[in-house]
């Protein structure tokens, strides 16, 4: 096994040990699913048609925005990066490892919701599982790219929590998973369009592939990736 593959496997283990990922990727989303799933399906029985999608968008948004930034800050805002540099490991290594590990965790959680929601709340399975999981994959990647920007830009691990919450709350509240978008004031609807959760939810709830719900996600991803490249360059260049 080469250094990169060993690093991925190791990061996976570290995420499990740190418990942050366990809590943000599994424990809280499952709790949210158990409580809100029950409420949604009782109050609005038709919500079972979009329950898998809404719970998945919540889990991905939470796991990415709350779970990933502290891991990145631990590497790049501490002396860990010195150890990497001193031992000939490229600094971008930490960014890749944490993203890949978080990606796998979030994909597993999405699959868990996909399997248990129909059993527990009689949720309706998406018509095209292939398109659905392609959408989930894209949503995870885009959410992680934004989380990476937070992790690389924050001054400390503690600082990431504040920024993450500031993005996480409007992401979930304005994306349509909590309230139907047509019930929100127009300004909130427009604000919600800035977040990947809105476009991800729209993409996942459609029974067909809708390009208009996909390209905004790709634009957000490209912008976030460019910001990550800029921030990484700034971290690498010690004056």
């Amino acid at each position: 096994m080469n250094g990169f593959l060993y690093g991925i496997a190791l990061q996976w283990k570290l995420d499990l040990r740190s418990k942050t990922m366990l809590i943000t990727c599994y424990a809280v989303p499952l709790l949210f699913f158990a409580v809100m799933g029950g409420i949604f399906t009782s109050v609005m029985p038709e919500s079972r048609y979009t329950l898998i999608q809404s719970m998945t968008v919540f889990s991905v948004t939470m796991g990415a925005l709350i779970g990933l930034p502290p891991s990145l800050a631990e590497i790049y805002r501490s002396d860990v990066k010195n150890a990497y540099q001193a031992n000939g490991v490229p600094l971008s290594f930490g960014l890749f490892l944490t993203n890949i590990s978080a990606f796998v965790h979030l994909l597993i959680m999405s699959f868990i919701l996909y399997v248990i929601a129909p059993v527990v709340f009689d949720a309706k399975i998406p018509v095209h599982p292939g398109t659905y999981f392609a959408g989930v994959t894209i949503l995870i990647a885009v959410s992680l790219s934004i989380a990476s920007v937070i992790g690389l830009a924050a001054k400390s691990a503690a600082n990431t929590s504040m920024i993450s919450i500031l993005l996480f709350l409007p992401s979930t509240m304005l994306s349509g998973i909590m309230f139907p978008n047509n019930m929100l004031p127009k300004a909130f609807v427009m604000a919600g369009k800035l977040f990947p959760a809105t476009w991800g939810y729209a993409f996942l709830t459609e029974s067909t592939f809708i390009w208009n719900n996909l390209w905004p996600l790709l634009v957000i991803f490209v912008i976030a990736a460019l910001l990550c490249a800029f921030l990484m360059k700034r971290i690498e260049t010690r004056q």
């Binding site: 570290l14 040990r17 740190s18 501490s78 002396d79 860990v80 010195n82 150890a83 001193a86």
Partner: peptide
Amino acid sequence: LQSASLPAY
């Protein structure tokens, strides 16, 4: 290095 660290876990 004098100031180097590793991930906590």
